[in-house]
Simulated scan of single mutants.
Amino acid sequence: MSPSNAILNSLPPAERAIILEAATPVEFRLGDLICEAGDRATHCTFVDEGIISAVAVMADGRTIETFMIGPEGMTFPLAVEAGARAYSRLVAQSDGYGRRVEIGRLRQLADHSEALREAVAAYAVRLTGELEQSSACNALHRAEHRFAKWLLRCHDRVEGDVLKLTQEYLASMLGSQRTTVNEAAQTLQRAGAIRYSRGRVTILDRVALERAACECYGVQWEILEAGIHPPPLAKAG
């Protein structure tokens, strides 16, 4: 199967083929733990479909998502240049699949591929930009606006309009109380942007959801995803 991953697809065909030969197909399911914070990174995963979330875990057990990885990216991009330890928990936010490459082997391949080094470095820079914007967003913007932004970013990375998301899971991703998430969901539902019930969020009106999101959605799109996916309004119905 040809990769859907933007990093791999940016490489010359011959170099991409070498990496695919060294890679092992991997599937993940909603809620699967990819690695725990503090674990030593052993493999990089290039995501073809689905979402992997990086989640910061506080000493009291509270959590908040710091960034998400979809078909535009990979886990542990900096491990290509140096050893890496996971600073956040990596967990599957949806069903999906990708290609895993052992880090030592990927380094060897990068030593002989300027295109791979440049593609991974460019992704790492964009990811840093996303993290910087997320820090400001989490500190300054209200939960309902962050919730709308978060739904849009999920919608950009998955097929279809239905997201399997429990209230508890949403609260852990947004670093908010379940009651706050429920209020935000009800506000978006009354606006006709989504339908929310039984652990599912259905995107009904993409344009309305974009109006409800904070400015960070557009900024993060420009930083990380411009030129990789269709324009943000492509899914609007």
Rank of each mutant, 00 (worst) to 15 (best):
M1P: 02
P3E: 05
S4A: 10
N5R: 04
N5M: 05
A6W: 07
N9S: 12
P12N: 14
I18S: 10
I18C: 05
A23N: 04
T24V: 11
F28C: 06
D32P: 02
D32H: 14
D32I: 09
L33M: 11
I34M: 10
D39I: 14
H43T: 04
H43L: 08
T45R: 12
F46A: 11
V47D: 06
I51P: 13
A54W: 04
A54N: 05
A56K: 10
V57H: 13
G61R: 08
T63Y: 00
T63V: 01
T63N: 02
I64K: 03
E65Q: 01
T66A: 01
T66W: 06
F67V: 01
M68T: 01
M74N: 08
M74W: 00
Y87H: 13
Y87Q: 15
Y87P: 10
R89A: 05
Q93A: 15
S94T: 15
S94A: 10
E102T: 09
E102I: 06
E102R: 12
E102F: 08
G104Y: 02
L109V: 11
D111A: 14
H112S: 13
S113R: 03
L116A: 01
E118L: 11
A122R: 14
A124R: 13
A124H: 11
R126T: 07
L127A: 13
E130D: 14
A136V: 14
N138C: 03
L140S: 11
L140N: 12
R142P: 09
A143I: 15
H145E: 15
R146Q: 09
K149L: 07
L152M: 06
L152F: 07
C154Y: 07
H155L: 10
L165T: 01
L165G: 00
Y169V: 08
S172V: 00
G175L: 09
G175F: 05
V181E: 03
Q186F: 03
T187R: 14
T187G: 10
L188C: 07
Q189I: 02
R190W: 00
G192R: 09
A193V: 00
S197T: 06
G199M: 04
V201M: 12
I203A: 01
A213R: 05
Y217C: 03
G218Q: 13
Q220S: 10
W221P: 09
E222I: 01
E222G: 10
I223C: 06
L224R: 07
E225W: 14
I228Y: 06
P232H: 03
L233H: 07
K235A: 06
K235L: 14
